[in-house]
């Protein structure tokens, strides 16, 4: 897929002056250096085996029956920082169809609100294994402990459907 190598040609002439034009020999030597560097990366900075294993196990998270509630607001990205507030809570909003899930994460816990208000059983996922269970009351409110370190998602079972929020780091 290196289909744009030719793009390198024209720019080179101006970068380094007329005495250092890219030649075929250069290209060969550069490829060799890149290959050597690739080998060095495989030796000195490989994907940790533990992470490889976690990615393989993540296959269990694929669930065609659940609807995905997309992250549509993340205070980390979308909010204007408030001067003087050192550690503001993380506010997240997820959407799918008619359902909105607002979540607030602080070091003290997790708080949320389903809209339109409705009861739901909620599981706090932190990976392929079962997580803590919460319940949203008839006003759609739920609270729980802070999610464990690492990525988390909420699996919500409302009256007639299962919704999973997009994975993210708290």
């Amino acid at each position: 897929m290196r289909d744009d190598d030719e793009a390198g040609g024209s720019g080179e002439l101006f970068d380094e002056g007329p005495f250092d034009r890219g030649t075929d020999e250069d290209a060969g030597e550069q490829s060799r250096t890149e290959d050597e560097l690739r080998q060095a990366a495989a030796i000195l900075d490989p994907v940790p085996a533990e992470l490889r294993r976690i990615a393989v196990e993540a296959y269990a998270l694929h669930d065609l029956d659940a609807r995905i509630a997309e992250l549509t607001f993340d205070s980390l990205v979308d909010a204007i920082p408030v001067r003087g507030v050192a550690d503001p809570p993380r506010m997240l909003t997820f959407h799918t169809g008619e359902l909105t899930v607002d979540v607030e994460v602080t070091p003290h816990g997790l708080m949320g609100q389903l809209l339109p208000p409705q009861e739901a059983s909620i599981e706090v996922l932190s990976g392929p294994r079962a997580g803590a269970r919460l319940t949203a009351d008839d006003l759609g409110r739920f609270i729980g402990d802070p999610p464990p370190a690492g990525p988390f998602a909420l699996r919500l079972r409302t009256g007639d459907e299962v919704v999973v929020t997009e994975w993210l780091r708290a």
């Binding site: 990366a41 900075d45 490989p46 994907v47 940790p48 992470l51 976690i54 990615a55 993540a58 296959y59 269990a60 998270l61 694929h62 669930d63 995905i68 990976g127 370190a149 690492g150 990525p151 998602a153 999973v164 997009e166 994975w167 993210l168 780091r169």
Partner: peptide, 29 residues
């Protein structure tokens, strides 16, 4: 995925979490 994490010079802990988040999302989608 790992190379992208390393290219951004995250701490090990952050890097590991980002890597996992990417794969969890990929599985989900």
């Amino acid at each position: 995925v790992w190379s992208v994490v390393r290219a951004h010079r995250l701490s090990d802990a952050d890097g590991h979490e980002v890597y996992q988040t990417a794969w969890f999302r990929f599985a989900q989608h």
